[in-house]
Amino acid sequence: ATNIVGKVKWYNSTKNAGFIEQDNGGKDVFVHKSAVDAAGLHSLEEGQDVIFDLEEKQGKAYAVNLRIK
């Protein structure tokens, strides 16, 4: 899926990971530091509006192509 709108639920820069809550009510999506880095960002803030694509690896959904809304 592409161009999904959501809000950062939480992001821990020590653990280099967090979750994004989908505005469409879907399951929360894992976001890794690699996606944050690829977006040219240093970190994510709780409640921040984002747009992202979903990629599945080994049955788990990940946020990729992250951008700030």
Score class of each variant (00 low, 15 high):
Phe19Lys: 07
Leu44Trp: 02
His32Thr: 10
Tyr11Met: 06
Ala63Trp: 01
Ser34Met: 10
Arg67Phe: 04
His42Pro: 11
Ile4Gly: 03
Glu55Arg: 11
Ser13Lys: 14
Thr2His: 12
Lys27Ala: 12
Lys9Cys: 05
Asn65Trp: 02
Val29Cys: 03
Glu46Trp: 12
Arg67Glu: 04
Asp28Cys: 11
Asn3Cys: 10
Gly59Ser: 05
Asn65Ala: 03
Gly40Ala: 05
Phe30Gly: 02
Thr2Cys: 12
Asp37His: 14
Ala61Phe: 15
Ala35Ile: 06
Val5Phe: 13
Thr14Ile: 12
Gly47Met: 04
His32Glu: 09
Phe52Lys: 00
Asp37Lys: 14
Val31Ile: 10
Phe52Cys: 00
Ala1Pro: 10
Ala39Leu: 07
Gly26Glu: 09
Val36Glu: 00
Lys57Gly: 08
Glu56Met: 14
Thr14Phe: 13
Asn12Cys: 12
Tyr62Ala: 07
His32Ile: 06
Phe30Met: 07
Trp10Met: 05
Ala1Cys: 12
Ala1Tyr: 12
Ile20Val: 05
Arg67Asn: 04
Ser34Trp: 11
Asp23Asn: 14
Phe19Pro: 00
Val29Met: 02
Lys7Tyr: 05
Gly59Tyr: 04
Leu54Pro: 00
Val5Gln: 14
Arg67Trp: 04
Val8Ser: 01
Lys15Ala: 11
Gly59Met: 05
Ser13Leu: 10
Asp49Phe: 15
Phe30Thr: 03
Val50Cys: 03
Leu54Cys: 08
Asn12His: 08
Asn12Ile: 07
Ile68Cys: 07
Gly59Trp: 03
Ala17Met: 15
Asn12Arg: 08
Gly59Ile: 01
Asp23Cys: 15
Asp53Leu: 02
Glu21Met: 14
Glu56Tyr: 15
Ala35Lys: 03
Ile51Thr: 08
Trp10Cys: 10
Gly40Thr: 03
Lys57Val: 11
Lys7Leu: 04
Ala61Trp: 14
Lys27Met: 10
Ala63Met: 02
Ile4Arg: 12
Lys7Trp: 08
Gly47Pro: 00
Thr2Val: 13
Leu41Arg: 05
Lys9Ala: 04
Gly25Ser: 07
Thr14Ala: 13
Ala35Gly: 03
Ile20Leu: 10
Phe19Ile: 12
Lys60Phe: 11
Asn3Thr: 06
His32Arg: 06
Ala1Ile: 12
Gly25Pro: 06
Gly25Asp: 07
Ala63Asn: 02
Glu56Asp: 08
Arg67Gln: 09
Leu41Trp: 11
Ala63Cys: 04
Ala63Asp: 03
Ser43Ala: 11
Lys69Phe: 13
Thr14Pro: 05
Phe19Tyr: 12
Gly6Arg: 00
Asn24Tyr: 08
Trp10Gly: 03
Ala61Cys: 13
Asp23Gly: 14
Phe30Ala: 05
Gly26Ser: 09
Arg67Asp: 03
Asn3Ser: 08
Thr14Tyr: 13
Lys57Arg: 13
Phe19Arg: 07
Lys60Leu: 10
Gly26Arg: 09
Glu45His: 15
His42Ala: 13
Ser43Asp: 11
Gly47Glu: 03
Asp53Ser: 04
Asp23Leu: 15
Phe19Asn: 03
Ser13Gly: 10
Asn65Ile: 02
Lys33Phe: 09
Tyr62Ile: 08
Phe30His: 05
Gly25Ala: 06
Ile51Asp: 02
Val64Met: 05
Val5His: 15
Lys60Asp: 06
Gly26Leu: 09
Thr2Trp: 11
Glu55Asn: 08
Lys27Phe: 09
Glu46Met: 14
Glu46Asn: 12
Gln22Cys: 13
Asp49Lys: 15
Lys33Ala: 10
Lys57Asn: 10
Ile4Leu: 15
Glu56Gly: 06
Val31Ala: 01
Val29Lys: 01
Ala63Leu: 05
Gly6His: 00
Leu41Ser: 03
Gln22His: 08
Glu56Ala: 08
Leu44Pro: 01
Glu55Gly: 06
Asp23Lys: 15
Val36Thr: 03
Arg67Val: 07
Ala63Glu: 02
Asn3Glu: 06
Thr2Phe: 13
Ala38Ile: 08
Val29His: 03
Val5Leu: 13
Ala17Leu: 14
Ser34Asn: 10
Phe52Asn: 00
Lys9Glu: 00
Ser34Tyr: 08
Gln58Met: 13
Val64His: 05
Ala38Ser: 08
Phe19Val: 12
